[in-house]
Write a protein that binds this DNA or RNA. Sequence first.
DNA 1: CAGTGGTCTAGACCACTTA
DNA 2: AAGTGGTCTAGACCACTGA
Lengths: 259, 259
Amino acid sequence: MVETAKKTGKSRDAKLPDLSDGIGFRPLYKQVKDSFIQQMVNGDWRPGDKLPSEFELAARYGVSQGTVRKTLDELAAQNLLVRQQGRGTFVATHNPDRALFHFFHLVGDDGSRQLPTSRVLSRVKRLATSDEEKRLGLKPGSNVICIERVREMSAIPVIVETIAVSAKRFSGLAKVPVEDLPNNLYELYEEKYGVIIYQAEEYLSAVAADATDAEHLGIEPGLPLQQIDRLALSVDRRPVEWRMSRCLTTQHRYLSLID
Amino acid sequence: MVETAKKTGKSRDAKLPDLSDGIGFRPLYKQVKDSFIQQMVNGDWRPGDKLPSEFELAARYGVSQGTVRKTLDELAAQNLLVRQQGRGTFVATHNPDRALFHFFHLVGDDGSRQLPTSRVLSRVKRLATSDEEKRLGLKPGSNVICIERVREMSAIPVIVETIAVSAKRFSGLAKVPVEDLPNNLYELYEEKYGVIIYQAEEYLSAVAADATDAEHLGIEPGLPLQQIDRLALSVDRRPVEWRMSRCLTTQHRYLSLID
DNA sequence: CAGTGGTCTAGACCACTTA
DNA sequence: AAGTGGTCTAGACCACTGA
C-alpha cells in the first residue's frame, strides 16, 4: 500500500513539512515503480520471471489498474520489463537478441550483426588498482577478478579486452574453470548472482596498438584501434563491471544510434 | 477526424478486407501521431511552435483528451515535442542544450561538455560522388553542397569534418557567405529550410591521420584518430546530411550511453 | 485567476495467447 | 473460454505558469 497522491498533495499544502515522504510530492506510479525496482534489486523478481497481472498488482498496492499500467509501461520503455499481449509481463533478460542489438555495438562493414566468440587468456584475483577502485566504487584494498580475453568474428581476432569486477560481489567467479566462462558474461551475472545489468556508459577513443594488442590481433604495432572503455551499471545504478576493449575496425564499425 | 478503433476492429472481424485503412488495425493514437508528424514534415508546425491544448486537439480530431495525451507523450519521449506543465506543448528545437547533450557526444577527459567552435575551410557546390548519392539517397547526377571545416575546443583544433547535403534541398546554402555559416548547422536547417533533424546513425572507427588531417590538427601523420561517419535523418526518416568527422581523442572521448 | 499539462480512477471493449 | 495486455473514454482533482 502506498501514500495516495491526493493525501500527499494536501499534506504539502499544509504549512507543516510532510515527514511521511520526505522530499515532497511523489506520484503514486513512481512510488510503485520504486517498489518494483527494489524487488528486482532484491532478487524477488529475477530475469525471466513472470509478474502478477495488472489487476493483481493494483489490488496488492491499493491503486487502480491504470496506475500500475503506467508504471509497467515506463519500466518496459527502460528495457527492464518485457510486455507481451496475451501472455503477461516479464523481467527482461540478457538473451542473445538483447545482447546483440542493445549492448553490443560492433557491426560489420555491410551492416551485418553477429556476436564475437571469446577465448580467455587469463583470469586472476588480485588487489584492485586505484583506477579500478575508483571506477567500480570499491573500498581501498579491495580485490577484483580480472579477465583478459580475445574475441573473434568470422574466425578473425578483432577485440582484446580486459574485464574487472569486484571479487567480493562475484566470489564464486574466481573458481569457475576458465573454459566454463560464457561468452555473454551479463547472462552469467544475472543467473548466478542475480545482478541485472541494465545500463552502460561507454567512452570511445582511438589509440595505437601496443605490442600485446598487435600480437593478439595479428597486426603491426602502432595501427589505430577503437578503444571502448565501458562501465556497466546494475538496476540500482551501482557500477558492476569495468571493461576495456580494443577493437580492430578495418572490417567493422561501432554503431551509435541517436534517438 | 479519424477512424475509430472500434470500427476498425469490427471491420477486421468481418470476412471482407477492410479497405478503409489498408493494412488492418491501427490504434487511434497512432493515427493521430501520424497526422502530427505530417504537420511537422509539412512545416505547419515548426520548431518552437506552441501546439493547441490537449482538449483543443482532442476536439479537432474527434477523440478523447486521453488519446491525444498518449500521442503527445510518445512524441515527447522521441524528443520531437517538449511538454511543460502550465505552459503548453512545443515542437522541439535544436537549441544549444539539445545540441550539447543529445547530438554532440565528445566530452572532455574529465567529463566536461562543451561545443567546439568552427572554422570553415571550404564550401563548394559540385556533383555528388557515388558514395554521397548512396548515403543521401540522391538521383544520379545530383549536386551536393560540401563544407569542410576545422573545429576547436579550448582553442585547440580537435576535429576536421566534411559535410555533404543535397544542393537541391538546400539551394540557398551555396550562396550564404561562408563566415555566416553557423556552428550549429541543424539550427540553420530548421530555421531556413524547415527541416527537422531528429535522428542520426553514427558509425565509429579508428583511423590513421593522413597528411591533411595532420596539418589541420597539428599532429604527426599516422596517429590514431576517432572517425565518426554520421548520417542525419529528418522527421520523415529521409537522409538529410552526411558528415565525416575525424577527431583527436587525446583530451576527449566519445560518450555513448546505453539505455 | 484562467489555462495548461500531470495524476488517478473506473469501466468498457478489443486483440492476442494458451489451454 | 479464460486470462492477459492494449486501446479508448469520461471525469475529478492537483501542480505549475503567466497575465
